[in-house]
Design a protein around this nucleic acid. Structure first.
Length: 820
DNA sequence: ATCTCCCGCCATATG
DNA sequence: CATATGGCGGGAGAT
């Protein structure tokens, strides 16, 4: 007896047929709903489904109730009847679980096809649903709200929703991921973890430095709902002020998964981040509790959607509830459209293309969208927030703030719009701008996860936008950052999405170390903390894959490094699939520039900012950007000080995974701009390019705060490329420890966590091992020297992984992740 | 005891 | 004004 899985349920036909039956009303008198599910009832199916999910429960129930009744249905019925007769009182323990939101959600979802045919839209009438499902309206709202956040449904009018199914999911997720990156959730997560960590070990932690301001700076926007071009919020409430807290929370929650590397997010962290956004400090306990409650609600429906599943992360402080993303991988934009459609295994692939365009055009021409984009309240709000931003910015010009308030204000509400641009265009623009500046920059290497299969032939990435971890962007835009102290301005190439994020020079911002969200001690964390992550049960798939991936990536570097200056394509582009598409460049920015969205959720076209690619930006614009006044709507694009690529040097610091940063000294300044390139990238620099002077490197590091002013890091080691030990690849379990013990630096291990797809390049390995407990390791930066010593770079010259003086030592930490 | 999270009061939004 | 929505948090079942 196969459990009727979702597939079945999903099938439209089945559903259709089943629907009528679903109604309990039609259920014959006696079969009162009872735990010992009757296999033939839809409800029972659901139950089975659920029980299947949690074996424990099932077994328990079976033992308890149906222990001897092996003949299922009939038997159970008998039992039921007896029971009923015995105690007429319903008492049929609708045990709390049977009323769970998760189950309810399953029922709800069962009513609609995952991929409704575009031709016939299905509507949702809340009244019907509540009635049919036997639930209080309130509960339905919970479900619908979350679905809304994913754009699986959208409200038409009171009591009325449209069912979109999962058609929008890819875009939505992509958009969310992007926003998540912009919000720098990774950093926040790290900060939180770090804090916890510090709190545990060193209550007296004298964490000085800017890190002290966790996200005080990152106080996020108020609620901003990420919309999709085609799916605006219709009339009904939702739009206006009444926040859509649950909706927004849901989106943010999802974002956390999408940006963090081991795609696992603990409730605690999520709650903190979500709280942190609105009310900075305010460690209100009750508030936290409430947040957690909400998260559970959201998690339940997300679980029903199979986007996440519950797991437990065990750290030294016991196990904490967490959830693991089990939804589709989300690829960085550009390729998005294509890849996602593919990856989603959409039953109705064709149907999607058209809506897409429509949506797109809508986004471009708001006018069509009716009055959706204008509304008093929002405008007012906008103004307010802008003012607010200004105030903040001005008041704390020198503070180590990393994110300007405006950042969030300018959050594109329709990030998707950008994403939807044909990759071609994007690349084209990109290329142009690049050419113009011939910056050796960028190469948005996408985070490992974004790289399904590291292609051996990948082009060497030269650099990467700093602070962006999972760089999923391909274009970079320079931003001028006034240096508070020296007064020297830096030009940092950032991905457009990041550009508007940074308004102030911030070491912290640049520090962003690894894409790995779980890595805690970024800075000088003494790592006393070695936590371990062990994944019990089979979802460990990731470990192996990632390893493989990383291996491939690292090993290849020298092979083909084409000389720098090649336009670095994003890694993903290097991938075969991606290559198929003629990648031309386009610039997101053009779009970004022309259209800016505000938190309020309305699309407001801006005229003053011309599209035009950054290459064309004039000096004046530059200036404008520099000014703190730079507000939400101003274009993130700035001018660049032209600098021959040759002058720029690239340093490869594998161990760090620091996203590369190109720092350019302002006109008058001399020196070469040190550039850190991500280790993931095969740095062409490995051998070809001149090595940056160590002084430059040190300068850089010091600035970033990675090393104390006095410390000098030898350049050579850093430049070396470390070859990954093959062993790690094979046994992910022990790889971590091995590395640590041997004093080896294991970035490969780090990569392990990069959530990713199961890419496997040359390495055969990594078939997923479903049910086995596995250990994943997490690394932390640690400074052997002591707390104050900045982390040093660990490098291996010759693949020896030797820790050089001042080498960065990355201890491992294991966390145990167990499912239920 | 802790983890989950259901229930439903009640403030708001909408029509 | 009647309803529809949807914050919110008490407190109880599940572990």
């Amino acid at each position: 007896l196969k459990t009727p899985l979702k597939e079945a349920a999903a099938s439209q036909l089945v559903l259709t047929e089943r629907q009528p039956d679903c109604q309990p009303l039609t259920t014959p008198p006696k079969p009162k709903e009872t735990p010992p599910a009757d296999p033939w009832t839809p409800t029972s199916n659901l139950k089975m489904l659920i029980s299947a999910a949690s074996p424990e429960i099932r077994s328990r129930e079976q033992r308890r109730q149906l222990s001897d009744c092996s003949s299922e249905v009939l038997q159970s019925k008998h039992c039921l009847q007896e029971h009923l007769l015995g105690d007429e009182y319903e008492k049929s323990q609708p045990s709390r679980k049977e009323k769970s939101l998760g189950l309810l959600c399953h029922k709800f979802l069962a009513r609609y096809p995952d991929y409704p045919s575009p031709s016939q839209k299905s509507y949702i009438c809340l009244d019907e649903v509540t009635e049919e499902l036997h639930v209080e309206r309130r509960r339905i709202y919970d479900i619908v709200n979350v679905l809304e956040s994913l754009h699986m449904v959208s409200r038409l009018a009171r009591n009325r929703y449209v069912w979109h199914g999962r058609h929008n999911l890819p875009q939505t997720l992509q958009a969310l991921k992007k926003v998540g990156e912009e919000n720098k959730y990774i950093q926040q997560i790290q900060t939180i973890k770090k804090r916890e960590y510090e709190h545990e070990f060193d209550p007296d932690s004298e964490r000085n430095e800017e890190m002290s301001s966790p996200f005080g700076s990152s106080e996020q926007s108020e609620m901003s709902f990420v919309e999709l071009p085609g799916v605006e919020f219709r009339a009904a409430s939702v739009n206006g002020r009444k926040y859509k807290s649950l909706r927004v929370m849901s989106q943010k929650f999802v974002m956390l998964f999408l940006v963090s590397t081991p795609q696992i997010v603990s409730l605690e962290v999520a709650a903190k981040i979500l709280i942190g956004e609105d009310q900075l400090e305010d460690l209100d306990k009750s508030k936290f509790k409430t947040k957690i409650r909400r998260l559970y609600d959201i998690a339940n429906v997300l679980s029903s959607l199979k986007l996440i599943k519950k797991v437990h992360v065990t750290e030294e402080r016991g196990r904490k509830p967490a959830f693991k993303w089990t939804g589709p991988e989300v690829f960085p934009n550009t390729q998005d459209t294509k890849l996602e459609a593919t990856s989603t295994a959409c039953p109705l692939p064709v149907s999607e293309s058209i809506p897409f365009k429509e949506q797109f055009s809508k986004a471009l021409f708001p006018s069509k969208g009716k009055q959706n984009f204008t509304r008093h309240s929002s405008l007012i709000k906008l103004v307010k927030s802008i003012e607010n931003d200004r105030r903040k910015i001005q008041s704390a010009p020198t503070s180590p703030v990393k994110i300007s308030a405006s950042t969030y204000q300018s959050l594109p509400v329709f990030p998707n719009t950008i994403a939807q641009f044909p990759a071609i265009t994007k690349h084209q623009l990109e290329g142009q701008s690049k050419t113009a500046e011939e910056v050796q920059m960028k190469c948005a290497l996408s985070s490992p996860e974004a790289v399904p299969k590291p292609e051996p032939s990948q082009q060497p990435a030269l650099s990467q936008p700093f602070g962006v971890c999972p760089a999923s962007h391909s274009s970079v835009s320079p931003v001028f950052l006034p240096h508070p102290q020296s007064g020297v301005s830096y030009a940092i190439y950032l991905h457009p999405s990041q550009a508007h994020t940074v308004t102030t020079y911030s070491p912290g911002f640049m520090l962003q170390p690894l894409p790995c969200a779980n890595v805690t001690g970024i800075k000088s964390n003494n790592s006393k903390l070695l936590n371990k992550i062990t994944t019990e049960e089979g979802d460990t798939q990731r470990g192996p894959d990632e390893l493989t991936k990383s291996l491939a990536a690292e090993e290849r570097p020298e092979m083909k490094s084409e000389t720098s200056s090649q336009r670095c394509l994003k890694r993903s582009q290097a991938l075969p699939e991606n290559n198929l598409i003629k990648r031309h460049k386009s610039d997101e920015e053009s779009l970004d520039t022309s259209l800016t969205f505000f938190p309020s959720g309305y699309l407001i076209p801006l005229t003053h900012c011309t599209h035009g690619n950054k290459a064309e930006c004039s000096t004046k614009e530059k200036a404008r950007v520099c000014s703190v006044q730079h507000t939400a709507y101003s274009s993130p694009i700035t001018g660049v000080i032209p600098m021959p690529a040759s002058e720029l040097k690239t340093v490869n610091i594998p161990a760090f995974h620091i996203t590369p940063l190109n720092i350019m000294l302002s006109p008058n300044s001399i020196a070469a701009a040190p550039v850190l390139s991500n280790s993931c990238l095969n740095s062409s620099s490995t051998s070809s390019g001149p090595n940056p002077s160590s002084s430059a490197l040190n300068f850089m590091l010091q600035h970033i705060g990675l090393i104390p002013a006095g410390v000098q890091v030898p350049a050579n080691p850093v430049l070396q490329h470390v070859s990954v030990s093959s062993q790690s690849e094979n046994n992910s379990h022990s790889s971590g420890s091995t590395n640590v013990q041997e004093g080896k630096v294991s970035y490969n291990v780090l990569e392990l966590h990069h959530g990713g797809l199961s890419g496997k390049c040359g390495a055969p390995s990594a078939p997923e091992e479903p049910q086995e407990p596995q250990a994943v390791t997490e690394n932390f930066f640690r400074t052997p020297g002591g707390p104050n010593t900045g982390p040093s770079l660990s490098a291996s010259s010759d693949g020896t992984h030797r820790t050089s003086q001042g080498a960065l030592y990355i201890p491992q930490r294991k966390l145990e992740v167990s499912e239920d």
